[in-house]
Amino acid sequence: MSETVLKIHNVNKTFHGLKALNNVNLEIEKGKVHAIIGPNGAGKSTLLNVIIGLLESDTGEVLFNGENVLGKEPHEINQMGLARVFQTPEIFPELSLLENVMVPALAKHEGSFKFKFLRSLASEKSIKEDAISVLSSIGMSDKLHNLAGSMSRGDKRRLELAMCLVQHPKLLLLDEPTAGMARHDTNKTIDLLKKIKEGGMTKIIIEHDMHVVFSVADKISVLARGAIIATGTPEEIKGNPIVQEAYLGGSHE
C-alpha cells in the first residue's frame, strides 16, 4: 500500500451559480505522476487553484500529508512543500536566470521571512551551487547572467520549472506545462519531465496534449463538468468508454 501525499475530499466550488467543482474526491500517491485531463471548462485549473490557496473552495478539505491546506496563505502552502508551475510563465523578468532560481532556493533555505541585509549574497555559496546545478539540468547553465525576460516562451516555462525544482518540493503542480508551445519545444519539455520523474517527486500535471500526458503520467484522472469521472492507468483510461463519451459526446447535450 503506497502512501497518499495529497487527499482531496468532497471539494465543491461554485462561481455565480455555476458549479465549477462538483464533489471532487482524489488521492495522489507518493512518487507518482498524476495527470488530470478533461475538456475545456471542466474545472482543471479551478482545482489546482484551490490546492495552492489561490481560490477558496465552498466545502471539503484538501489534506497535504495529513494537514489541511484550505484557508492557508499561498506562502504557507509553498513552505509546506508544494510548488506550482503556472499556465502563463510566472518568473522574474528583470532578474537574471541565476537570480530567478536563487530566490526560490533562498525561500526553501530561509523560510517565508528573514531580515538579513548585512550578509552578502556572494557568501551564500551552497545556494548558488544548487541553483546552478538545477539550471544546468535544464540546459541553461551557459546563460546564468542573461535576463529571464529576454528568453523565449518555452525557455521561460522551463525556467519556471527549474525555480520549482530547486525547492525540492514534496508535490509539484504543473498547469499545462506545454501549452502554446511548438512541437519541438513540447518534446524538449517532455524529455525534461521524464528526466525529473526519475527523482521520485510526486507531481500533478494538468494537460490538454494527450501526447504529453501519455508520455509522462503514471495515473490519469478525467475531469468533466466539475466531477472526476474516471481514474486509472493510462491504458485503462484509453479504453474507458465513459471517458470517450465525455470527450467526444460532451457537446451533444
Binding site: 499561498p74 506562502h75 522574474f92 528583470e94 533562498l106 528573514k114 538579513k116 541585509f117 552578502s120
Partner: peptide, 29 residues
C-alpha cells in the same frame, strides 16, 4: 550597498519584478 548585495535586497527586487510569484515561492512579502 549592503542591502543591494544581500539576499534581502535580491528578494526586494524579486518583489518588484513579480510579487505574485514571490507569494507562490514561499515568501510572506
Amino acid at each position: 550597498l549592503k542591502v543591494f548585495n544581500s539576499p534581502f535586497g535580491l528578494k526586494l527586487k524579486a518583489i518588484k519584478s513579480n510579487q505574485h510569484r514571490m507569494k507562490y515561492t514561499g515568501y510572506n512579502t
